[in-house]
Design a protein around this nucleic acid. Structure first.
Lengths: 345, 345
DNA sequence: CTGTTAGCGCGTTCAT
DNA sequence: ATGAACGCGCTAACAG
C-alpha cells in the first residue's frame, strides 16, 4: 500500500471515487451545489487518504496568501514581542498567518527584508521602521506596488500614505514633565536617543515645551541623546555625575535607559526617587519591577498590535481605508514600588 | 502607460523582448547556458518593468517554500522571544522565512495551528509543546507526513523520533540545590508547576535527589506546584507563610514565579536572601534586575533558537540527521544585586 | 448538480 | 544557446 505515494491531492481522491476533481474541490469547500451525501462520501475518502490541502496551490490560484508580514527591529524586546502577540492573536482569530522579520535596526537588512516581502508571500505588512526612520523610500515602493502597509510606533507618517498606530509621544513627554513639575521639581533633564528619530524628537518636544511653558530656562547639557539602551542610560547618567550638576528629576525617553540611570545613581549612593526622581516611557514588566516614581506608559503594546492588525485585515478584506490612529499615553503613577519600600524600612 | 497592468511576470518581459519565457527564467536564475549579453538585457528589462518574482509560484513549482513554522506557547515571554530571535537570525542568514504561531498553552489551539502548518506553507517546524506535554500524537502525525520537526525546551523526546534542543533540567535542579546546601541551607522548598510537565518534573527530580543525597527528609508541603507565573509564585509563598513553617531557601523552577515569591516575602518583612534564599531558573533580564542569590540560568535562550534552526535547516538541505541536544545549564552566582545593595546601607 | 477546460507564474525536460 | 510544451495543485468559468 505504501506506494511511495507523494501527497494525496484532490485529483487522487477524485480518481478513487470515480468523479471529477472539481466536484471534490467544491465538496471540500462546502459548496451548496453538492449533495450532502456526496459531500460526506468525499470527506470520508479525504480523511481515509489523509488528504491535506496544498495551501501554496490555493495561494497561487487565488492570488491571496492569507499571510501578513511583520517587520520589527528586534523580536526580543518586550515592546515588540507584545505588539507581535497582539498581531498574532488577531491573525489567528481571522485565520491569517504571520511571517516575522527583524531589521535589527539595520537599513540594509531592512531593505532586503522588504524586498523579500514584496515577492508575493504576504498580502500586507505591519512594520516598525528601522532607525533612522527619516527615509521611507523603501516603504513607498511597497505602496506603489499596492501592498497594504501599516506602521506602528516608529516612523513619521506625514510623508507617506499608509495606516499607522502610534502613541502620542509629544503628549506623553509633556504630561510626564508636567507631573514632575507638580511635584516640585524644576531642574528636569532629558535622556533620550538621537533626535532625528521621530519618537525621540516628539518626546523631546513635549519635555521642552512643558518646561518652557513654566518659564524654566533649559541648558544644553540637560539633554543627553546617547541612546536608549540600558548601557547608554548609565553612560548618560555618568556624564552628568562627572559634570557635577545634578538635576531634580530626569525624564527618560526609553525604558531600558531608565534602568541604567537608576542603577548608576544607586551605585553612587543616590536614591530614587528621594534624591532624583525619574520618569520614563516604560513597558509593563520593567515598570512593575523597578518602576521609578511614575511612568508614562505606552498604552498597552499588545493593543497596538491588535489595532494595527485589525486595520490591515479590514483593508485586506473589505478595502476599508487605512487611517492614522494615535493612542494617548496613559500616565501611571506609583508612589513607590516594592523595592522602594525596602529603602524606607 | 498605466494599463491597469496586474503584475509583470517573466512572460511579460519575454514578450517585451521578443524571446521566450524560459529564457527569461533561466537568465534570472543566472544559468550558465545564457549569454551574458542577453542576461544583461533581460535584467535591465526586468528592472524597467519593475518585475518581482512570484515566490508562491516558485514554491508550488519546486515544492519547497523556504519557510519554517515556529510554534511557541507565547511570543511575549522573554524566553520564547529570545529563542525566536535566534531562529530568525539563522533563518535570515540562510534565506528562510519564519512563520510564527502561539499556542497560548491551549491544546485545541495548538492542534489547529499544527493542522494549518501541515498544509504545505512550511518546509519544517520548530516547536515548544503546549502544556500538558504528555500527549504528542499531533506531532506524530507531522512526523508521519515527513515534515521535519525540532522540539525545544518542552516535551519529552523519548517517545517520538524528532530533533530537540533542551536544557538539562535535572542537572539544573540538582546543582541549584547543591549550591544552596553548600551555603548552609537544609530546609529547601521547591516551587514549580504541575509535575506532569516534563521540565517541571525533571527539575523536581534534581531538587529531590540533591536533598536525598544529603540525607535530608523531604516533607510534602515543601513542594508547591501551583504554576510558574508570578501570581502563582505569590500564592505558593502565601500558602507557606500562612502555614508558618518557613524554609531556609527555595528552589523556584520558574523565573516569573520567583519574582512573585520575592515580592510576597518582602511585603511580609522578610529579606532575600538574608532570611530566605531563592534560586530560580531564570532568564537574563529578570535575572539582571532582581536576581535573588543565584540563578541557574537556561544557557542562552537565543542560542537554543539558533541551534534548533541550524538543525532543522541542515536536515532540510542536506538531509542531515536530527539529533537530541542537551545543553548544560549554567549556574550563575551573584552575591547581591544592585537592589540588595540598598538593603545593606 | 456535475464534469471539462483553462489558467495562476514559474521551472524544466526535450527538442532543436 | 534557446524555445515549446508540460505540470505543480488548485479554483473558477463554462457547459451541460
Amino acid at each position: 500500500m505504501t506506494e511511495k505515494s507523494k501527497k494525496t491531492s484532490i485529483y487522487d481522491i477524485a480518481k478513487a471515487l470515480g468523479i471529477s476533481a472539481s466536484t471534490v474541490s467544491r465538496a471540500l469547500q462546502n459548496h451548496t451545489s453538492i449533495s450532502d451525501s456526496r459531500k460526506e462520501l468525499i470527506r470520508e475518502k479525504a480523511k481515509e487518504l489523509n488528504y491535506r490541502p496544498n495551501l501554496v496551490a490555493v495561494n497561487l490560484k487565488t492570488g491571496k496568501t492569507r499571510t501578513i508580514g511583520v517587520l520589527v527591529p528586534n523580536i526580543n524586546r518586550f515592546f515588540f514581542s507584545s505588539v507581535i502577540e497582539g498581531v498574532e492573536d488577531e491573525a489567528y482569530r481571522r485565520n491569517y498567518d504571520v511571517l516575522i522579520c527583524q531589521s535589527k535596526d539595520n537599513k540594509d537588512r531592512e531593505e532586503k527584508i522588504l524586498s523579500n516581502l514584496s515577492q508575493g508571500k504576504v498580502d500586507g505588512i505591519i512594520a516598525s521602521v528601522a532607525y533612522p526612520d527619516n527615509n521611507l523610500s523603501m516603504y513607498e515602493e511597497l505602496v506603489d506596488m499596492e501592498i497594504p502597509l501599516v506602521f506602528f510606533d516608529r516612523a513619521s507618517v506625514d510623508a507617506i500614505q499608509v495606516g499607522s498606530v502610534r502613541v502620542d509621544d509629544y503628549k506623553g513627554g509633556y504630561s510626564a514633565v508636567k507631573h514632575l513639575l507638580l511635584q516640585g521639581n524644576k531642574k528636569i533633564f532629558h535622556f533620550s536617543g538621537p533626535l532625528e528619530v521621530t519618537v525621540w524628537r516628539n518626546r523631546y518636544r513635549g519635555w521642552r515645551d512643558a518646561l518652557e511653558d513654566e518659564g524654566i530656562e533649559i541648558q544644553d547639557h540637560w539633554v543627553q541623546t546617547e541612546s536608549t539602551d540600558k548601557e547608554s542610560g548609565r553612560k548618560m547618567m555618568r556624564a552628568i555625575l562627572e559634570r557635577g550638576d545634578l538635576p531634580d528629576a530626569i525624564f527618560c525617553a526609553g525604558d531600558y535607559a531608565a534602568l541604567g540611570v537608576i542603577q548608576e545613581l544607586r551605585e553612587n549612593g543616590l536614591r530614587v526617587p528621594e534624591d532624583i526622581a525619574i520618569v520614563g516611557f516604560a513597558n509593563e514588566p520593567i515598570d512593575e519591577m523597578v518602576r521609578p516614581t511614575i511612568s508614562s506608559i505606552c498604552q498597552s503594546s499588545f493593543r497596538m498590535g491588535s489595532l494595527a492588525a485589525k486595520m490591515l485585515f479590514d483593508n485586506l478584506e473589505t478595502k476599508e481605508a487605512m487611517v492614522n490612529i494615535t493612542i494617548a499615553p496613559e500616565l501611571k503613577v506609583r508612589e513607590s514600588s516594592f523595592f522602594d519600600r525596602r529603602v524606607k524600612k
